[in-house]
């Protein structure tokens, strides 16, 4: 069987997204910002729907710009709630996630109910559906992903320092808040470009599961980023392939299930940290000279 050219291009684009999501997600997870990423992901829907209503078209760049705007807006709201109320982190995140997702769903169902032309395909942003992507869309996703990777390469030293020891970073003169905002914004960008593939509900999985699985295989940040990127890539491609083979199959769930399977295998078989290694191998002696 021959694979259509469009499917190949889309697969390549989504593969780039999967890789970059795994890399950026690693920094987010190391800084313990996984939940903030989830809130941003759920918030994208409202922006996507608003962008559609305002522009009246289903142009991917426009919709994603809208998604990014509402994701950043929700993260800003999170910062404000934390600063001006005594709400705990987890509760604040849950509030922002719930409210922004509620707005998104309300807009989406409004668009569907009124039968606005072109609005029918918007559910693809809920659970992901790559079969509808064009080659131009894929190129956009890949371009943004490569830019995100470049940003990580540039600021890896600063991000690692702040993630490991923010107090030391602040005392030695690094603007911890600025680094944090950049990091979370980068996670938001990856969540947004992950939308067409995984959808608002499941895209976090692409940013969180690969890093957690990768951590089991290595004890260093650099290798963790690479392994996480590769896991994200494999999961993303598996989603595209499944979506291409089975008509109308949502891509998001396939991506999540593949990533989860890799995580489960890592949990069992990773050297030293895996269940099997802990069970069989001699426990690593804690060295006290």
């Amino acid at each position: 069987m021959t694979i259509p050219y469009n499917t190949l291009v889309v697969a390549a684009g989504v593969a780039a997204v999967g890789f970059a999501a795994g890399v950026v997600g690693s920094l987010g997870v190391l800084r313990k910002r996984a939940l903030a990423g989830d809130a941003a992901a759920h918030a994208t829907l409202a922006g996507v729907a608003t962008a559609f209503l305002v522009s009246g078209r289903r142009d991917l760049p426009v919709l994603l710009a809208g998604g990014l705007a509402s994701a950043l807006l929700s993260l800003g709201g999170l910062v404000l709630i934390r600063r001006f109320t005594k709400t705990r982190d987890d509760a604040a995140t849950a509030i922002v996630l719930g409210v922004s997702f509620g707005i998104g769903i309300a807009l989406l169902s409004g668009i569907t109910a009124r039968g606005i032309p072109g609005g029918g395909g918007l559910e693809q942003f809920l659970l992901g559906h790559t079969a509808a992507l064009t080659a131009a869309d894929a190129a956009l996703l890949a371009g943004v992903s490569i830019a995100a990777l470049a940003a990580v390469w540039l600021g890896l030293k600063e991000a690692t320092l702040v993630a490991f020891d923010p107090a030391f970073a602040a005392a030695s003169g690094w603007p911890v808040a600025v680094v944090d905002y950049c990091l979370v914004a980068l996670v938001a960008v990856m969540v947004v470009v992950g939308l067409p593939a995984a959808g608002a509900v499941l895209v976090t999985a692409l940013v969180v599961i690969p890093p957690v699985a990768a951590r089991l295989w290595t004890d260093r940040v650099g290798p963790m980023l690479l392994v996480s990127g590769c896991i994200g890539l494999v999961a993303a491609v598996a989603g595209v392939v499944a979506s291409g083979l089975v008509p109308r199959l949502a891509t998001g769930p396939m991506i999540v299930l593949t990533a989860a399977a890799i995580f489960f295998v890592s949990l069992l078989f990773a050297p030293r940290r895996g269940w099997l290694a802990k069970r069989l191998g001699p426990r690593f002696p804690l060295t006290v000279e």
């Binding site: 690692t160 320092l161 260093r220």
Partner: peptide, 23 residues
């Protein structure tokens, strides 16, 4: 955290390096 002893000690040199420059 996935860093080595060396990685942590190098963090002490970061202020001298400034933004984006690696040790």
């Amino acid at each position: 955290f996935p860093v080595s002893v060396m990685d942590v000690v190098l963090m002490g040199t970061y202020p001298r390096l400034g933004w984006f420059r690696r040790p």
